[in-house]
Design a protein around this nucleic acid. Sequence first.
DNA 1: AATGAATGAGCCTTCATTCAT
DNA 2: AATGAATGAAGGCTCATTCAT
Lengths: 194, 194, 194, 194
Amino acid sequence: MPKVGMEPIRRAALIDAAIAEIGAAGSLDVTVSRIAKRAGVSSGLAHHYFGGKDDILLAAMRHVLSVYGAEVLMRLKAARTPEDRVVAIVEVSFAPSNFRSDTVSAWLNFYVLALATDDARRLHRVYAHRLRSNLRHALRPLVGAKANELADRTAQMIDGVYLNHGLGASDPDWERAVATVMQSLADCLRGARS
Amino acid sequence: MPKVGMEPIRRAALIDAAIAEIGAAGSLDVTVSRIAKRAGVSSGLAHHYFGGKDDILLAAMRHVLSVYGAEVLMRLKAARTPEDRVVAIVEVSFAPSNFRSDTVSAWLNFYVLALATDDARRLHRVYAHRLRSNLRHALRPLVGAKANELADRTAQMIDGVYLNHGLGASDPDWERAVATVMQSLADCLRGARS
Amino acid sequence: MPKVGMEPIRRAALIDAAIAEIGAAGSLDVTVSRIAKRAGVSSGLAHHYFGGKDDILLAAMRHVLSVYGAEVLMRLKAARTPEDRVVAIVEVSFAPSNFRSDTVSAWLNFYVLALATDDARRLHRVYAHRLRSNLRHALRPLVGAKANELADRTAQMIDGVYLNHGLGASDPDWERAVATVMQSLADCLRGARS
Amino acid sequence: MPKVGMEPIRRAALIDAAIAEIGAAGSLDVTVSRIAKRAGVSSGLAHHYFGGKDDILLAAMRHVLSVYGAEVLMRLKAARTPEDRVVAIVEVSFAPSNFRSDTVSAWLNFYVLALATDDARRLHRVYAHRLRSNLRHALRPLVGAKANELADRTAQMIDGVYLNHGLGASDPDWERAVATVMQSLADCLRGARS
DNA sequence: AATGAATGAGCCTTCATTCAT
DNA sequence: AATGAATGAAGGCTCATTCAT
């Protein structure tokens, strides 16, 4: 029995299902039918709400990025010192919400999807800019003019650590991931100041 | 025009073509027919030599990794000091041969393929181990017991930088990539020694 | 034009089409596309309902056998004397429903398919057993202990006559086929009694 | 190193290999490559000698039939009485040479192939006529005018028994097969005389 | 709003056949 | 005489997408 106002619920369910399928498959080679089935709807409805498979994938990517963005924003608001801000940014990158095995698989696949499609590239660009921008602002009070370079380095370190933990043999250890990035950053900070 | 002794030539041509197609598509969604056509052979021959699409892709991944491995080996042999060895490892990661736009796309796609298939996972694991092992040996004379941790960090930094340059808007600037990694490592070395 | 409850209709149409194609080709070398086209549907739908080509073929074989089985059952119910029962069994084997040129071709091809695949072998076994079992029961009142052997012989005679009429130059003459089997059986019965 | 006068040897090897492959597969879905490999030659040579796959199959059918025909001829020559002649014909049908599992599979498949191609139909027709003709001549001294009908019946019984032993669960028991046909014929003979 | 029946394009794969050597 | 490299047509199958209900 169809109901009104189901759209946001359906869309959310489909996006979650898409991420779960990508997680299970480890790739973007997932079928619309399976996504729909997992979301408890028909494949036709998935197209009705999203228009096509690519749109579902893109919506899922957008969702992952926006969840990440929202979390960063929240943590930044609560931060009091520059150090707090840096820690916040790094920690969110490895927060549990971004670290379910599903999500990691989705992230990495979306990353690489940026090589193939313009839409994904745009989304990735926005994420990359925002990460660097956030890091820059947090680091400026600490290292002044070198904030730019350091933000860049840190952003790349975050991605590298994420990639390696995501592909690692064992379950990702996110505390260790944060520690690795922070230690690296600490060393760089000392270098920047001297 | 059948000839004898064509097998290695055909295999190489098909692997090159596969990498080129992956580069052009930005993803592993390439068809055997297109790979074959680019290699100047029929699709049937591609199957004859490799058995199937997955085998072609895997052979391409193996090729990329072994070219990389060979280059590292060569550079390490020529290195005289520990510092030389570290530089060699980092530079090869961003050497032109690994940095044609094709190859970058292939690398990144193969990386993520490790999430989806066991064979790719195994290959990636070998690469990851070797990279860390090489770094460890090079760093040991410089930082002793901390070599382990530093090798790990550096390996992740390399991947992060590679990923970011590969996905970057402009053409990858590999000199800058090397500089970034080396600068980061220098800072960490100083931190490790103090 | 999607409708609900089409499944049984589609399945039946596809099975009929498969038999018709086998009849036209005289072999099992028929394509799913042609079967589907003859059934008035797309090839995709054929796979949707049956899973694959082998399943279509097997379903067709099962259909042929079950139509035959049902007809035997019906005729046996109406039979009053042992003689009636024997006649019923023999006549059904050469009844028009099993004797359209299509069906004959399908029967013979399915027979031989039992040499190649386990599923077909199982189906054939069931048919063979049931035929003998039916004959045995019908013959027991007439020849007692010799029913077993006579049932066996008759079953083989039926197959032989079917095979020869199926492969014959002219259109199969089923009345003559029945007469041949019955005459042979009559001779054997006399032999059995003496 | 190519030799002269190899043609008959190659042809024989390929025909044997074809029959063996058909036996192993239980169907005519065998590849030229496999046949050639089993015969120890290249697939190209198979085409060179036979022209194409269908020709190989047809040659194999012809071979099977001619071996059978030769054996019948030999046995008939040695026969002294009409009874001998009948026994000879029946026994050859179930002689070991025609009863290797390979050959049975080939026979049955060739039988049904007669439904699909004209060439096979012609070959089958020749076999069927000769069998009936032989039986007719052997039976004439025994039953006179009824020889025609009895020959027909016996031929069909032979095919039926062959079919059933070929498809049977256990290994074919050819002595029992002969006994079944002969018993059946004996009953019919008695019927014919009375 | 929602379904799922139905389509058809496109892919991987097999294999008979050809042909340069 | 013989090879087997190479082709390309054809088939099975999947799946995104559409649409009548």
